[in-house]
């Protein structure tokens, strides 16, 4: 690990003024300490945001507000979250381990870096870590990599389960910069790699995520997160689906759906949503709609199985939630 200065700001405003290209914020540390040990991230200043007032989980008129410093474990088991947004709770409980969920913050979870082995290995070329050096994964080991939103520069998968659930629910984040606050839709916040895979989101240097807002959606009480992985627990997704289902008898009134493990960002599926709305609750409907999820998929040597697997994941999630399984 390279040397750094450890700084403790006394206000959010001071934190953002201390931020910058040479600095990194630290909350739970589960990503940044790991990547600093690997020398993948080498901030010369580490700004500890833990003392800042960014806590609280509240159900309000306009929806759920989660402070960025809330721990994954606390959000996962919060009664309002469990009751109103099971998909969030399930996505969190299927993430990482109990220890890591006790450490990792919600804001940090949304900013966690890819698990691409080449990104994490400073001795191999990687456009995300070192722009212009090339992508080792495209012709390398790419079983865990993305099939959607990829480019000739980068095929790294976005690793967050929580982000998939939040994108499905049309969540937004609050971003603070000095005295200014802006609100941004989470789906818009994340960027596909294109030619600049080092730019993963719209956060500017020094900016801090202070909270997450999930719109009120009464029928999100019928929602779930299905995660398919190599091990039953403590493993990143091969594929996953975040799903909320609004039923009117045997007819699908509306759906919210996004998938994980397959995209360079959490992959929202408005086409699948449109294809399901107003249709009968039947396996044939599900399969036809799920096909739309892989429009434009670009499978490579080792990850072609994800094209089928993600469709089956969507179908199974619909079967489970629709009571047909």
């Amino acid at each position: 690990m390279r040397p750094f200065t450890y700084e403790v700001p006394s206000s959010i405003q001071e934190a953002t003024s201390r931020g910058g290209a040479d600095a990194a914020f630290i909350a739970g540390g589960t990503t940044i300490v790991d990547l600093m040990k690997l020398e993948v991230m080498n901030p010369s200043r580490l700004v500890d945001v833990n003392p800042l007032p960014m806590l609280g989980i509240q159900m309000r008129e306009d929806g759920l507000r989660i402070g960025a410093l809330e721990k994954m474990s606390d959000v996962a088991e919060h009664p309002e979250v469990v009751a109103n947004y099971p998909v969030i709770s399930e996505a969190l409980l299927q993430s990482a381990s109990a220890q890591i969920r006790n450490m990792a913050s919600i804001g940090g979870n949304l900013l966690q870096r890819t698990r691409c082995g080449y990104f994490r290995d400073v001795f191999t070329p990687c456009n995300k870590r070192e722009p212009g050096t090339g992508c080792s994964a495209i012709d390398g080991e790419n079983r865990m990599h993305a099939i959607l939103g990829t480019s000739s520069s980068c095929i790294a998968t976005h690793p967050s389960d929580l982000a998939v659930a939040l994108v499905a629910l049309d969540a937004s984040i609050y971003i603070q910069n000095g005295a200014e606050e802006r609100v941004m839709n989470l789906d818009d916040f994340y960027l596909v790699p294109g030619e600049t895979p080092d730019h993963e989101n719209q956060l500017r240097p020094g900016e801090l995520i202070t909270a997450v807002r999930v719109p009120r959606l009464l029928w999100a009480r019928r929602s779930t997160y299905l995660k398919i992985r190599d091990r039953e627990s403590y493993e990143f997704a091969l594929t996953s689906a975040a799903l909320a289902l609004d039923l009117n008898g045997d007819t699908i009134r509306d759906v919210r759906i996004a998938v994980g493990g397959v995209g360079t960002k959490p992959w929202n599926l408005p086409e699948v949503r449109q294809a399901l709305a107003g249709k009968p609750l039947k396996p044939e409907t599900f399969a036809a709609a799920a096909k739309l999820a892989v429009n434009g998929a670009n499978p490579l040597r080792h990850n072609g199985f994800k094209v089928d697997l993600v469709q089956r994941t969507i179908v199974r999630a619909l079967m489970n939630l629709g009571g047909l399984a």
Binding site: Y6, I26, G29, T30, V33, D34, D48, N50, S73, A98, Q99, I100, N102, M103
Partner: peptide, 19 residues
């Protein structure tokens, strides 16, 4: 490396002592 920090289990290898 699991220890308890304020009664909760955490990984001490990813916790900076200063924190």
């Amino acid at each position: 490396c699991t220890v308890h920090l304020d009664g909760r289990r955490v990984l001490s290898c990813l916790t900076l002592a200063v924190m």
